[in-house]
Amino acid sequence: MARMKFLCDDERCIECNACVTACKNEHEIPWGVNRRRVVTIDDGQPGEKSISVACMHCSDAPCAAVCPVDCFYTTDDGIVLHDKNLCIGCGYCLYACPFGAPQFPQDGLFGVRGKMDKCTFCAGGPEADNSPEEFEKYGRNRIAEGKLPLCAEMCSTKALLAGDGDIVAELFRERVIRREGANEGGRRQSGAPWGWNTAYRKS
């Protein structure tokens, strides 16, 4: 069974934010909610690196572990989804998530946050695939259409990869080997993709 994962290659990410707007586009995400973002560390200094980050669909999802109403579920493809009908907007998933993935439409007084929203790996939610109800709550369900997340599909430099973890990792490994071959004695490449140990280490 495929185990879906995201991978961001920091050697290629140029912070063009295509992943961010592709997501907005595909799911009609309102202003202020960003299921995906690009972070640049050491901005403007040597060693500057950019990384695109969203829900990583962790193996042992912290959000699911702390949700008081158990609204998360993991699909057969390893995609972590949630049920907005159940979500009470408590924010615990936000506290727990290492990646800052959970988003809330509001940030009101008395803890009024609205229903949590996050990256669905373009896999919608519990409603019927691509029903208007599903679209309204979670955006488009590309997985049901046999497609992959649009952010990765539209990545300008193919830095962001999405799909079966084994295949994605293999693609990345080949790329690393090619780069190391190309730049002998040059910059050494890290062995595991960014964030994978946090997201996918089996417990």
Binding site: A2, M4, D77, A128, D129, N130, I143, A144, E145, G146, K147, L148, E153, L161, A162, G163, D164, I167, V168, L171
Partner: peptide, 12 residues
Amino acid sequence: LPLTMMEKAAAE
């Protein structure tokens, strides 16, 4: 798809 890594889900 460039990465055809999943079975094409049966379209609803």
